[in-house]
Simulated assay, not measured.
Amino acid sequence: MDENHKTFVHFLVTTGTSLGEAPAIQIAYIDLAARVPDARITKASKRDNHSGYYTGQPKTGTGKPTIGIDRTLANLLHPLLTGNRHRTAFTTGTGACISHKALWQHDWDHAGSVTAGRSCCTF
């Protein structure tokens, strides 16, 4: 599994964010220096009527939630949070957005089978 995908899957599993919310999180909204590291959900990736994706408001309804990040995840995220603060935090090794389809087809089943019966995300 791609290293960036491992961190992304770890983020999904440990924070409970959706496959729409997590890829839209910008570097500027992740604070690893806080007493309790956190990320703010301000946007979500959504599918349009033409099988494409766009960034819009999350489905959370009430405000923009802040989610806690444990130290293990914070350590994994640290190397990803360089560069333009308005860039999304989760990208492929080539800098492209992580594709829902590619993640689902190539990594999600693998992540589930590897972590079954274990602590989260020990790939």
Rank of each mutant, 00 (worst) to 15 (best):
V36E: 04
V114S: 10
D31E: 03
K64Y: 15
Y54H: 12
N84Y: 13
Q26W: 04
P65Q: 10
N4K: 11
W108P: 01
V9I: 15
H106W: 12
V114Y: 14
T92F: 07
G20N: 03
T42M: 11
T88H: 06
A116Q: 15
Q26M: 13
P23L: 07
L103R: 01
N75Y: 10
T88I: 08
E3A: 13
R71K: 13
P65G: 08
H5R: 13
A96N: 03
V13P: 00
A89M: 03
A28K: 12
I69K: 03
T7H: 05
L103P: 00
S113R: 15
G63L: 09
Y29Q: 05
P65D: 11
D107V: 09
A44P: 00
T15R: 05
S51A: 09
P23C: 06
K101F: 09
P23V: 08
R40E: 09
D2F: 11
T94Y: 07
A39L: 13
A116M: 15
T92E: 01
I69M: 07
L76C: 09
T66I: 15
G16M: 08
H5C: 13
K101M: 07
N49L: 10
I27S: 00
Q26R: 14
Q26D: 06
I27W: 04
H100S: 05
R40F: 13
I67N: 05
R40G: 01
R71I: 12
T122L: 14
Q26I: 09
C120K: 14
T82R: 10
V36W: 02
A33I: 04
P79Y: 09
T94P: 00
G16N: 03
H50T: 07
H10M: 09
D70N: 15
D48N: 14
K6D: 05
T115A: 14
L76G: 01
T55K: 08
T82I: 13
T55I: 15
K59Q: 05
K59N: 02
S113I: 15
A96V: 00
W104D: 05
L76E: 09
S99L: 08
G93L: 07
T88V: 12
F8K: 01
S99I: 08
H86K: 08
C121R: 06
